[in-house]
Amino acid sequence: MSIGILVESLQKLIKLHEQLFKIAEKKTELIKNNELEELQQLVKVETKYVQAVRQIDKARTQAVDELLDGKSDERTLTTCMRFVPKESAETLQRLFEQLSALLSQLKRQNDLNQQLIQHSLQFVNFSIDMLLPEPDEFNYESPTKVDRNVNQGRFIFDSKA
């Protein structure tokens, strides 16, 4: 029975990760188009999928533990394949390869999204730096000149407050 649960868990994980990949692609478009409200809504949906992945992964882990009960200390699919009939091992291998490929795609897409967000943040920081006035000199000044700059409102932080 553990084999059936393991296969079913892997199939569900594949479906969930396919949906997560579609969400990641949609996030890329939203980031490019600067559609922040839609992006926030999509992140909420993504969170629900991630929670479902965690729950199904627990069932997968339990199935692996039951299947390998005392046979091996290694709790991997590769180890499971050694202790199941050939047809089941082939099915597990196929599902494993499909899930691995999907996870690689998802990782690449999420890395792209992270880079896009970092570029956006760099642009925002650059824009803020352009708007803020820069001090005229970077050297020490006489106390009278520093006091005059304080009175002109050039310092943002008021240390007396």
Results as ranks from 00 to 15, higher is better:
residue 155 F to I: 03
residue 25 E to S: 09
residue 58 K to F: 10
residue 63 A to Y: 03
residue 84 V to N: 09
residue 42 L to K: 05
residue 159 S to R: 08
residue 112 L to H: 09
residue 111 D to Q: 06
residue 23 I to S: 07
residue 98 Q to P: 06
residue 31 I to N: 08
residue 151 N to H: 09
residue 33 N to Q: 14
residue 89 A to Q: 10
residue 21 F to I: 11
residue 121 L to N: 06
residue 80 C to I: 01
residue 88 S to K: 09
residue 150 V to N: 02
residue 2 S to L: 13
residue 147 D to L: 14
residue 15 K to N: 13
residue 77 L to F: 11
residue 63 A to T: 05
residue 57 D to C: 05
residue 135 P to D: 14
residue 127 S to A: 15
residue 72 S to P: 07
residue 151 N to S: 10
residue 110 N to A: 00
residue 95 L to Y: 09
residue 110 N to P: 04
residue 73 D to S: 11
residue 153 G to A: 03
residue 36 L to D: 11
residue 157 F to W: 08
residue 56 I to Q: 01
residue 117 I to H: 08
residue 24 A to D: 01
residue 84 V to G: 00
residue 110 N to Y: 01
residue 43 V to F: 11
residue 105 Q to H: 11
residue 112 L to V: 05
residue 75 R to T: 11
residue 131 L to Q: 00
residue 149 N to M: 13
residue 135 P to H: 13
residue 103 L to F: 03
residue 57 D to T: 09
residue 152 Q to H: 14
residue 149 N to A: 10
residue 44 K to C: 04
residue 132 L to D: 04
residue 114 Q to L: 05
residue 161 A to V: 09
residue 142 S to W: 08
residue 9 S to M: 06
residue 60 R to V: 06
residue 69 D to G: 11
residue 109 Q to I: 07
residue 12 K to H: 08
residue 14 I to W: 08
residue 145 K to D: 13
residue 51 Q to E: 15
residue 22 K to P: 00
residue 112 L to R: 00
residue 63 A to D: 05
residue 58 K to V: 13
residue 76 T to E: 02
residue 4 G to L: 10
residue 103 L to D: 07
residue 33 N to C: 11
residue 117 I to W: 01
residue 27 K to W: 06
residue 133 P to H: 06
residue 50 V to F: 14
residue 108 R to C: 05
residue 120 S to R: 03
residue 53 V to D: 07
residue 87 E to I: 04
residue 126 F to Y: 13
residue 154 R to W: 08
residue 71 K to W: 11
